[in-house]
Design a binder for these strands. Structure first.
Length: 349
DNA sequence: AAAACGTGGTA
DNA sequence: TTACCAAGTTT
């Protein structure tokens, strides 16, 4: 620019936006580039809700959850007024349950404020909103020229500038470089374009460079190392843990307990179990327990193999409460155990 | 600052 | 089956 050379960031952004105008993915929470140009704005509530759901979660998994949440709670005020258990139940199966707890805290804070803060800094102060989400909402809902850096953007930028430093060490440099691409005009479309490009063209394994609007500017492409970037530090092997789950039944009622707010599956309904450390533990009530099978499940940082014990009983429990449950309100691990025990034939009365 | 925190799809 | 990956945040 000042030196007369074309600004690489501005050129990249321009090419990217042209591509986005023709190739933007359609999503329930998104205002497409055409409507956007016509002056339509996305509802900040929709942007926030979708962004939180999309944290470490695929678009395919989020779609139906987003539709159910917005059908049931059309505004942040209605969500703020919802009961915790209802929101946790609606989130069940989506994972990372701290998001749902923070979602409610955030909705209540926003309702108390009378609306969403319109700046990145203001958004950053809210629970469950970190650097990525604050930038995304600021850019998409409020046209702030904030730089959005998610896994897609890290990959696109690492390749565009051929950054060979492995993640997470490269994070700061990638953020700095991503900022050189962020335009003052259409920052929200730019952010979504970067993510669409990363999700559909500049993919982790086999990038389709032939279709990429930025291929002529891409250093990694020129060096023939696009598919090798970004480099990542090797991950630790997951340990395997063993445990037991007790599924006690009284007709249509099952013995369940609400898990502590903090920690794994926090705040969710679950069946009583031991500590999943292989040591076993006392059953929640005295009964003639029958082994009905085994459930294997993998969490972020360990594999789990649970023995599922079941009993039909009227004995008083030492833990938990007998309740009518909806399998859909259970985290996936417990839903697997439920499916096993519930499908078990039992003596008719 | 490293570790905790879910799930389902894909190679 | 195993490992990686997906619009990260919190402690």
């Amino acid at each position: 620019m000042r030196d007369g050379k074309p600004d690489r960031g501005a050129l990249a952004s321009s090419l990217l936006l042209d591509w986005y105008d023709r190739n933007a993915r359609v999503m329930p929470w998104r205002i497409g580039p055409q409507d956007r140009a016509g002056g339509r704005r996305p509802d900040p509530y929709h942007v926030w809700l979708s962004e939180v759901m999309l944290q470490q979660t695929t678009v395919a998994a989020v779609r139906d959850y987003f539709r159910r949440f917005t059908a049931r709670w059309p505004t942040v005020q209605t969500l703020a007024a919802a009961e915790d258990e209802q929101v946790m139940a609606e989130w069940a199966g989506l994972g990372y349950y701290a998001r749902a707890r923070n979602l409610l805290k955030c909705a209540r804070a926003v309702a108390a404020l009378g609306g969403f803060p319109a700046t990145r800094d203001g958004l950053l102060a809210l629970p469950g909103i970190g650097p990525y989400t604050a930038s995304a909402i600021a850019a998409i809902a409020f046209d702030e020229a904030a730089t959005v850096v998610d896994g897609n953007v890290e990959r696109v930028v690492a390749r565009l500038f051929a950054i060979e430093t492995p993640l997470p060490r490269a994070k700061q440099e990638l953020t700095r470089l991503a900022a050189t691409l962020t335009p003052q005009e259409r920052p929200g479309d730019h952010a979504q374009a970067m993510m669409d490009l990363g999700a559909t063209i500049c993919t982790p394994r086999n990038p389709t460079c032939a279709l990429c609007p930025l291929s002529s500017l891409c250093d990694a492409r020129a060096a023939g190392i696009a598919a090798q970037l970004p480099r990542k530090a090797p991950k630790a092997k997951k340990p395997t843990r063993l445990g037991t789950l007790w599924l006690a039944r009284q007709g249509d009622l099952w013995l369940v307990e609400t898990r502590p707010e903090r920690g794994l599956l926090g705040g969710m309904i679950g069946f009583p179990g031991d500590d999943w450390d292989g040591a076993g533990g006392p059953a929640p009530l005295h009964a003639d327990w029958e082994t009905v099978g085994e459930v294997r499940h993998t969490f972020t940082h360990f594999h789990l193999i649970l023995t599922i014990l079941s009993a039909e009983t009227t004995a008083p429990p030492e833990r938990g409460t007998f309740s009518r449950i909806s399998p859909a309100a259970l985290p996936t691990l417990f839903r697997k155990a439920f499916d096993l025990a519930a499908s078990r034939p039992r003596p008719s009365t």
